[in-house]
Structure formats: C-alpha cells, structure tokens
C-alpha cells in the first residue's frame, strides 16, 4: 500500500465507501499522474524547442512532430495507393496480351517504390525479432551448459567478459565483410543487409542471456538438486524437470535485458550500415536536411522509444504467462 492509498483510505472513512476510495486512488495512480507527467514534459519540450535554433531551423516542438506523423501516414497511404495502381495496370496489360496471344507467358514485376516509414518500422521489427530469436536459440542452451559445469564456466567466462562490452559499431564492419564473403548465393533467400543487421543484433544481445541463464542455473536451490539426485533423475530429465523451470525467472530477466539491447543495437546498426529499417530512415532524413527533417527524426525517436517499451511489456507478459514465479514485475 502506498501513501496515496493510505490517504485515500483515511478519507473514505469520512465520505466514500472503501471500494470507491480504492478505485479513486488507483485511477489517480495509473491515469492522472502519468498524464500529468506527460503534459509537463510536452510543455517543457515545446518551450525548450522554441529556444533552440539549428541550421535546419527551429528545433521541432510537439506540434511540428505531430504534423510530421500525419505527413508520414499520408505518404504511406499514397505509396500503397500507387502500388495498388501499379499492380492493377500490370494485370490489365497482361490480361490484354493473353487475350491477343494465348501462348503469351505473362510477366509479373514486383513494385519497387521507396519504403515508407511504416515499411521501415516493420523491417526493423522483423530484423530485431529474428536476431533476438537466434540469440535465444544459442544463449539458453549455452547458459545452461555453463551453469551446470564449473569447468565450462571457467573456460568460457573470460570470452564472455571480453565480448560483452563490445559495441555493435565494432562488430558491423566485420560482420559485413564476412557475410559478403560467405553468403554468395545467386538467388539469395534474404537480403545481405538483413543478415548483417541480424547477426550484429545477435552478437550484441547474446551475452546478457548467457550470463543470466548461467547464474540462474548455477544458483538453483541445493535442496532441489538433492531431490533430483535422490530420485536419480537422468541428466536430460534433470535439466527438463528441475534446471529449466527453476531458472525460468533468471532466463527471462536475461531475455528482457537482451531484447532491450537488441533494439538499441539494431537502430545503430541500421544507421551505420544504411540497412533498411528505422535507423536508415533517421539517417536518410539527416542527410536530406530539409526543414521537416528534424521533426521527422523526432517522430522516429518517439516511435523507437514506444516500440522498445512495447517489446519490454511483451516480454513481461510472456514471462507472466510461462513463469511459476509470480513475483515477476
């Protein structure tokens, strides 16, 4: 119970029935205060923005950014409209030619318009999830192995400690060169740029998961391990029945940290390598240098923040769903 609740409860004895008082205090806590915080921030932002002059004009305030959100949405709609028109024309043309000449094999070309803001968001989301899932697939088994074996821990720990602090910007050139050298299919399944971003994300977000999983596994209650020993559970069953469930809370802590890292790393990698995604959008706008650019970048910043927040909430919801540890928050 926090102070607000206490005060509200005291008031309730005077007028309101208890339930109403609790509802009121919850509404206060969950709605009114955050809204007040956001309003104060918007005010501070618009006042500060007016006083910052850049070579591209005044720093955009909330209104300018909102305007750009609309503009970006309109651009997206227009682009979809064009795409539909393009495919319609193509279909019609093909139909006409087939009508004239039944042996004609209709050609279908893909639409190649510029990616819209929404397209970039989706690209980034797909990339971050792919990179993250690849990291999960590597990190959790590795973390379990390290957590179970002191020898393996001693062997691998120095490597983890050295690679953990490496910035994505350092990995990127190496990843790019290696992917170019090794990934030379004439008809690639996925774009090289996608692979570059994905692998960079994986390399950076691997470590928090490995470390947390290892600590979770190594820290399992000794009594639970003894239960397993008394039952003579075979190794695989021991991992499945005891180790994995016992370390689920720590594994999820690692996964949440990693997903946060992954999202930050991805934006940086997209900017640096100009791989499709939100990072490229920011970079393009920066290079573009029009009077709207800063407002559009600011719009992207807000979206990046919002997505990062939603990803974290999503992980939390997943954790609550699968974890026996109800203390998660």
């Amino acid at each position: 119970m926090n102070t607000t609740t206490v005060i509200a409860t005291k008031f309730s004895s005077l007028k309101l029935p208890h339930l109403d008082a609790t509802l009121f205090s919850n509404a206060m806590r969950l709605v009114a205060l955050p809204v007040a915080g956001i309003l104060a921030f918007l005010l501070l932002w618009s006042v500060t923005a007016q006083n910052i002059d850049t070579s591209l004009g005044k720093f955009p305030g909330p209104a300018a950014v909102m305007e750009q959100f609309n503009a970006l949405y309109d651009e997206h709609q227009r682009s979809r409209e064009k795409e539909r028109a393009f495919y319609e024309r193509q279909e019609k043309r093909n139909a006409e030619r087939v009508a004239k000449d039944p042996n004609y094999q209709p050609k279908i070309r893909a639409y190649t318009g510029k990616e819209t803001f929404l397209d970039q968001i989706i690209t980034s989301l797909i990339t971050v999830m792919s990179g993250f899932l690849l990291a999960v697939a590597i990190a959790i088994p590795l973390g379990i192995a390290i957590g179970l074996s002191q020898a393996l821990n001693n062997a691998i720990n120095p490597i983890i400690q050295i690679f953990k602090p490496v910035s994505p910007l350092a990995w990127l050139p190496l990843v790019t060169m290696v992917v170019s050298a090794l990934y030379t299919s004439p008809d690639p399944l996925v774009a090289k740029s996608f692979l570059n971003s994905l692998i960079t994300v994986t390399l950076c977000c691997l470590w928090p998961m490995v470390i947390n999983t290892a600590v979770g596994v190594a820290g399992i209650d000794k009594d639970l391990v003894n239960v397993s020993k008394v039952l003579r559970l075979p190794a695989l069953r021991h991992v499945q029945k005891i180790v994995l469930p016992a370390s689920v809370p720590m594994i999820f802590t690692g996964m949440r940290l990693s997903l946060g890292v992954a999202w930050m790393v991805l934006i940086a990698a997209e900017m640096l390598a100009q791989n499709p995604g939100l990072g490229k959008f920011v970079w393009d706008e920066f290079q573009n240098g029009s009077s709207d650019s800063l407002a559009r970048i600011m719009a992207a910043v807000l979206v990046i923040g919002l997505i990062g927040f939603l990803l974290d909430r999503g992980m939390l919801a997943l954790q609550k769903l699968v974890s026996w540890d109800k203390a998660a928050n």
Partner: peptide, 19 residues
Amino acid sequence: TEPGPERAVVFQNHSLLPW
C-alpha cells in the same frame, strides 16, 4: 555409493518444486 530413492529424504525445508 550414491543417492537413491530407496533412501528417501524428507528435507528440513520441504524442498518441493515450487512450479
């Protein structure tokens, strides 16, 4: 020479698997 179910243990703090 090793633990086994023919010598079952009731541990001091119950040691049930919480999940």
